[in-house]
């Protein structure tokens, strides 16, 4: 079968820059859950489309959240 033509990567805009959120709260687990995989790993920037600064803020928030048992370090569901 022929390979599908190379897709042009769509340029994603960082959701935090768009919404003008400056502080990523570690208590907001519903928001942070969008940035972790179902295994509990932090999604890469190429997946989330965040800018450098906000990806870093998200990562810190997720890590803080994990320390307080709001998010899992790992989840072996499956």
């Amino acid at each position: 079968m022929a390979k599908p033509p190379a897709r042009k990567p769509k340029k994603k805009v960082c959701v935090f820059c768009k919404e003008k959120i400056s502080y990523v709260d570690y208590k907001d687990t519903t928001l942070l859950r969008k940035f972790i995989s179902d295994r509990g790993k932090i999604r890469a920037r190429r997946v989330t489309g965040n800018c450098t600064q906000h990806q870093r803020d998200v990562a810190t928030a997720v890590k803080n959240s994990r320390e307080m048992a709001l998010l899992p370090y790992t989840s072996t569901a499956r």
């Binding site: 208590k27 994990r66 307080m68 048992a69 709001l70 998010l71 899992p72 370090y73």
Partner: peptide, 16 residues
């Protein structure tokens, strides 16, 4: 509910 057990406890009372 805690995301993982802390001191063998699966729940906690959170306060900010």
């Amino acid at each position: 509910r805690l995301a993982y057990e802390i001191n063998k406890k699966s729940e906690g009372i959170y306060s900010v």
